[in-house]
Amino acid sequence: MINRNLVKALRYRYVLLAVGLILLAGGLVLLPKQEKHKGITSAELLSNAISPERYMSTDEIAHKIVNQDPSILLIDVRDSLNYQKYSLPNALNIPLPKLLDDNSMTFLNQDQYEVVFFSNDNFDADKAWIISNRLGFKNIHVLKGGLNSWFKTIINPTMPEENMPANAFEQYRFRKAASMYFGVVYPESVIQQSTEQKKVPKKVITVKKKKKSTPEGGC
């Protein structure tokens, strides 16, 4: 008897399979659509946000600019008016509202350069940082303290007090040398140097499109 029932059921096995397959396919149609967000998860974003690598100090940047480090890409996120008035040497101008333009993407979505955002203070640069991080871009940093800090520390460094530790003097010496590189003239150096401003040659930045390791074809 069991055998006969089994045979009976087996007669419909293809029908059952077909129905199962259609149900599976139909399930895809009926599933609630979910919003897919690109980029990294909130947890990753948080861990990037509290990572100390997020900031680059003005000294680091000055050092890299003086040594003409080819790996950094400075991006000024202020508007173009301010950019024209003053900016860091070789900096690119991507105003915050234009951050997501296709043009900007070429510079942000790549892995050849260490991108450093800066604005007058931290705030706009931080916003740009968060957005870029959220999109999953790599090697994004913020200039700590922005241009204000740049002026305070590099362009116009304060002389350390007599009783401060030795490395403060070393830092001061470096900052002073750096500021001279960036065109600040000190009275004591006027004698040897003519007053002509040292123009840093504009370097041409070419960014190769990021090559994703997309799989190649089959046959």
């Binding site: 293809y14 077909a18 397959l21 259609i22 599976l24 396919a25 139909g26 895809l28 149609v29 599933l31």
Partner: peptide, 18 residues
């Protein structure tokens, strides 16, 4: 066309073909 709808049609088409 939505891929999900296409898959559904494709499945039905396949089963008819079988």
């Amino acid at each position: 066309i939505s891929p999900y709808w296409f898959i559904l049609f494709f499945t039905i088409f396949g089963i008819i073909a079988f």
